[in-house]
């Protein structure tokens, strides 16, 4: 067995090839999840790459990504499976004529019923089952990456419903019995912390908290994601965003916004930051008018600071 440190570095490098730059802490979580067969609960502020992590994992491991977006009112019919009612109805209609042939020779009601019973399983077979995200990932032959996005938006009942899946990788369907995973998927649950996730769920998961990256990591992320940005500008804009996060804002810019901003600046052929440019593009970074108004007076200072930090 190779040393865990080596494997973790491998994961990091593999992710880097997919354009996802992460630190050892995140890679450790992936390493643990694969070796312990446990789901990962990813928490952190919006826009730090929680969903990206699942995508990168699926690309890195070359597994299918199955995504389930949670929302209020999500129930098992939408998350797990549904019967193809239309198809069932259609088939019964079509097969009506065949019914006479089937019943031929049956003596009395009881015998006819017995005959029918031989067929009713066909209507509740996998043939008529419409698999949704969760079932799809259990059925997947060579494993998959299952992303259950924004679990905090779902209802308590759904959270409880997930427990069986998360601890045993199996699910019980009344009509079919217990379905076990053909090979255990790698499960990611993400949460923005709009509400506290239940203890039972947390207990079953590896808990990964992704904070905002430090300047060094963020620079590397920008390098990977927006390679067109020149080095000087890259340092400046990262330093600008890092300073911005220390201010009191309604919503601090996340990594995804830094990336967007970098792309914007590339589009504008910017070579370095100047306050006019910053002022004009600030709406890419800040999503509240209040925030934009509030820092308007600080833009000059922030820009100078960013420029001197980058040197």
């Amino acid at each position: 067995m190779t040393a865990p440190r080596v494997e973790i570095t491998d994961i990091q490098d593999g992710f880097a090839k997919e354009g996802y730059i992460c630190n050892a802490h995140i890679a450790t979580a992936i390493f643990l999840a694969r070796n312990l067969d446990k789901p990962i609960l990813v928490e952190g502020p919006p826009g730090v790459g929680k969903t990206e992590l699942a995508k990168a994992t699926s690309e890195y491991l070359n597994l299918e990504l199955i995504r389930l977006q949670c929302y209020e009112g999500l129930d098992e019919a939408k998350a797990l499976y549904e019967w193809k009612y239309g198809k069932q109805l259609l088939y019964t209609q079509v097969l009506k004529e065949k019914l006479g042939d089937l019943m031929e020779g049956a003596q009395g009601l009881a015998a006819s019923m017995d005959r029918l019973h031989e067929f009713d399983d066909t209507f509740f077979s996998e043939e008529f089952l419409e698999p949704r995200a969760l079932l799809k990932s259990l059925w997947s032959e060579d494993g998959s990456v299952l992303l259950i996005d924004e679990i905090d938006k779902s209802d308590d009942e759904f959270e409880a419903f997930l427990l069986e899946l998360l601890s045993e990788y199996q699910i019980t369907v009344p009509e079919l019995g217990t379905i076990k995973a053909k090979s255990s998927p790698i499960v990611f649950l993400t949460s923005n912390n709009t509400r506290e996730i239940g203890d039972a769920l947390k207990r079953r998961c590896i808990h990964l908290y992704i904070p905002f990256p430090d300047a060094d990591l963020e620079t590397r992320i920008i390098t990977a994601r927006v390679p067109e940005v020149e080095e000087g500008l890259r340092k400046q804009l990262v330093s600008f965003v890092q300073n911005l996060r220390d201010l009191e804002l309604k919503k601090v810019p996340a990594v995804s916004e830094t990336i967007d901003w970098a792309r914007t600046l590339v589009l504008l052929h910017a070579k370095e930051l100047d306050s006019e440019m910053v002022r004009n593009t600030l709406n890419v970074l800040l999503k509240f008018q209040d925030d934009i108004d509030n820092i308007d007076s600080d833009i000059n200072a922030l820009t100078t600071k960013a420029r001197s930090a980058a040197e």
């Binding site: 050892a24 450790t28 643990l32 070796n35 312990l36 207990r203 998961c205 808990h207």
Partner: peptide, 23 residues
């Protein structure tokens, strides 16, 4: 986790343990 990562590399151990113990 401890079995998996061992006690030699403290940073790895810390990262790994923090993910299963502190939530």
């Amino acid at each position: 986790v401890a079995e998996l990562v061992g006690f030699e590399d403290r940073q790895v151990l810390k990262d790994a343990l923090s993910q299963v113990l502190a939530k």
